[in-house]
């Protein structure tokens, strides 16, 4: 009773604060825009362009997440996922490869799947191959490298094997689902939902999608802002001068992929532009690493999973991709 009282008191206060915020920010922007450095509108434009590019994919992602929440039960999941760990990982990677997603849209989906009882390792397999291997990415890679299938095949092959290995190592290292505590409570109330009419369930699904969107978008926005900030103020040229040997340049390209946070559908063209600067191995590293993890994506993952897990996953992806990409040059 007391807390209810408290809440009704705080709402007007917050309302006031919110209105103040909404009024003051534009005013502040307007009054200072005359003195702002010209780089700020540039930063803002890059920031918004990343968001405008990513938000449609996030919307698709949250709609699918909403669908999973309402229509897929834990029983379904139990029936679909093989008991055998290795088979489960293989299956998740194959499903991810067939599933056209981008790296920001897939995070809410994976979170919902794991919440529904999909084992962590299967979720990771899906998370890694979803954005990396899909028809649009293959097509753009094929085109960016002069209608040559070699790079597209290498990207898929190396990416798939790396994702398999990473997911398998995750299956050994982590036993629990690693979701953040407040988000990891399992659902057991689904049974009652089944009896509800279809229209109600569709509404439920959309309600979930809306809440999921607000949950996810703040991390996407933060990530996009950091990526835009780095693009505006940090010269990539200085980074490129570091890469002399094959190993160094592979690392440089991976760092670049991480920082730029490009959509996996557009990164092939950027990667291709380094053809004359760096060996194929380094470009492959760029193409495989970027869709698996980048700055924007990692901030979103941190919102879903425990920080320790995200950190281990980050290290694993970095090491495994580095090793496999360099091994591929021996082929």
């Amino acid at each position: 009773m007391q807390s209810r009282q408290k809440r009704s008191l705080t709402i007007p206060t917050v309302l006031l604060l919110g209105i103040l915020f909404l009024i003051s920010v534009p005013l502040l922007m307007k009054s200072t825009s005359l003195t702002l450095p010209s780089s700020l509108p540039q930063l803002n434009t890059i920031f918004l362009s990343i968001l405008i590019e990513a938000i449609p994919f996030v919307l698709i992602g949250v709609l699918i997440a909403g669908f999973i929440q309402i229509f897929i039960t834990e029983d379904h999941i139990r029936a679909w996922i093989p008991k055998n760990k290795f088979l489960a990982v293989v299956m998740s990677c194959v499903v991810g490869a067939a599933f056209p997603a981008c790296e920001c849209g897939i995070v809410p989906i994976v979170r919902r799947l794991i919440g529904k009882g999909v084992p962590l390792y299967a979720g990771v397999g899906f998370l890694l191959t979803g954005p990396l291997i899909n028809p649009i990415v293959i097509l753009s890679t094929y085109m960016a490298f002069g209608n040559d299938m070699e790079m597209a095949l290498l990207r898929m092959g190396v990416g798939f094997v790396a994702a398999l290995v990473i997911a398998l190592i995750i299956s050994i290292l982590f036993k629990s689902n690693q979701l953040k505590k407040d988000k990891g409570i399992s659902h057991s109330e689904r049974k009652g939902n089944k009896k509800q009419p279809f229209v109600t369930r569709i509404r439920e699904m959309l309600n979930h999608s809306i809440d999921e969107f607000f949950d996810m978008s703040k991390y996407l926005i933060a990530g996009a802002f950091v990526a835009a900030f780095l693009q505006t103020y940090v010269s990539t040229q200085s980074l490129l001068q570091l890469g002399n040997s094959q190993f160094q340049s592979a690392f440089v390209m991976m760092a670049l992929a991480f920082v730029l946070s490009l959509c996996s559908e557009a990164d092939a063209f950027i990667g291709a532009s380094f053809k004359n600067v760096f060996p194929t191995t380094s470009i492959l590293a760029f193409l495989v690493y970027g869709p698996m993890i980048d700055l924007k994506n990692m901030i979103m993952l941190l919102s879903v999973f425990k920080a320790k897990f995200v950190f281990v996953l980050f290290i694993l992806i970095t090491c495994i991709v580095f090793i496999f990409v360099n091994l591929s040059s021996l082929l």
Binding site: L22, S33, P41, Q42, L48
Partner: peptide, 19 residues
């Protein structure tokens, strides 16, 4: 808020220099 307040800028030579 920034989208409505700050008109889109055209990328300029400072970005070019970074690239």
């Amino acid at each position: 808020v920034t989208g409505f307040m700050i008109p889109p800028a055209t990328l300029d030579s400072s970005i070019a220099a970074n690239k």
